[in-house]
Design a protein around this nucleic acid. Structure first.
Lengths: 140, 140
DNA sequence: TATAGTGCTTCCAGTTACTGGAAGGTCAAG
DNA sequence: CTTGACCTTCCAGTAACTGGAAGCACTATA
C-alpha cells in the first residue's frame, strides 16, 4: 500500500502523512523504487493519531499516547493522566471563550449597527465606555 | 516617551510593540538618536489594540477596527459586523470544544487509571471501543 | 574620563501543525 | 513513446509573537 492508499484508508492527506514521518511520529518502510510502503500496522497507527488529533491532543501527546498504545505493559494511569491534563486545558479554554463571548455579545447587542459613528463596541475598545463590564485584559 | 515607557503604559511588551510596528499596525516616529518616540496618540492606539486582542480579535481585525477608530465618519454597522463575525467564530469554537469535552470526559471517567493496561481511552483512540459515543473525526 | 549598566536598535530563528507549490523521478495504459 | 497520475524532496508560508545575539546610546559613578 503506498501513501495515496494510506491516505484514503485513514482520512489524512498524503502531505500530512509525510509530515508525520518527518517528525518521526509514524515512519513507513520504503519500497525498491523509493516509495513509502504502508502495512496494516502503519495504517492503525495513523488512524490512532488521526483520532487523537480529532480529540484535540497535541502532536507530542499523540507521540506519548502512541508509545503507550504499543506498550503491552502500560499502566492505564499514564493514559488517563495525559487525557485528564488535556481535558482540563479544554475546560480552561471553554471558560476563557465564554468570558469573551459574554463581553462581546453585550457590546454587540448595544450597538445600533447603522450609518452613525457612535458605537459602544468602539467605546469598549478605546476605554471610553460609559458603563460597561470589564474586558479580559490578557492576550494570548 | 520611548518604547519601554510605552510598554509600561500599555501592558504590552517592547517586543510586541516593535512587532506591531513591523506589520505596520502602530508605527511610531523616531527621535534623533533612532529611538522610537511614542505620543499619547500612539499609546491610545496600542491600548486599543491590546484590548481588541484581549477580546480575541485577530491582528487583521485589529487593523480594520483601528482604521474605523480613526474614521470620524465610520458607520457603526461596520464595527458591528466585525464584532458579530468574531462572536460567531467564538461561539463555534465553544461548541467544538464542548463536544471534545463531552467525549473526553466520558472516556476519562471510565478509565480505571491504575497499573493495568486495559484502558477505554486507548480503546476509543484505537477504534476498538466496545460501547462508545462517536469521536469528533475532524482535526483542524 | 573611563567604565559599568541599562535600554535601545536590527536581524534571525523558533514556536504549532500543517499546506501549497516547484522540480523531477516512476509507473501503467494506450 | 507519450500522457497522466502518482510518487519523491525541499522550500516557503501561515498567526502572533518570543528569545537571543550583536552592537549602539545614554546615564551615573569612580
Amino acid at each position: 500500500m503506498n501513501i495515496g492508499d494510506a491516505a484514503k484508508a485513514t482520512g489524512l492527506s498524503s502531505k500530512t502523512i509525510r509530515y508525520y514521518e518527518s517528525i518521526a511520529l509514524v515512519v513507513a518502510d520504503r519500497m525498491a523504487n523509493g516509495y513509502r510502503e504502508y502495512e496494516d500496522m502503519h495504517v492503525h497507527k495513523l488512524r490512532f493519531v488521526q483520532r487523537a488529533r480529532g480529540l484535540g491532543f497535541s502532536i507530542e501527546d499523540c507521540r506519548a499516547l502512541l508509545s503507550l498504545y504499543e506498550d503491552q505493559n502500560r499502566a492505564s494511569a499514564e493514559v488517563k493522566n495525559i487525557a485528564k491534563k488535556h481535558l482540563s486545558e479544554i475546560e480552561a479554554k471553554i471558560t476563557e471563550l465564554q468570558n469573551l463571548q459574554k463581553t462581546l455579545s453585550h457590546l454587540v447587542e448595544h450597538c445600533a449597527g447603522d450609518h452613525r459613528p457612535d458605537c459602544p463596541i468602539m467605546d469598549g475598545l478605546s476605554g471610553t465606555q460609559h458603563e460597561t463590564n470589564p474586558t479580559t485584559e490578557k492576550p494570548h
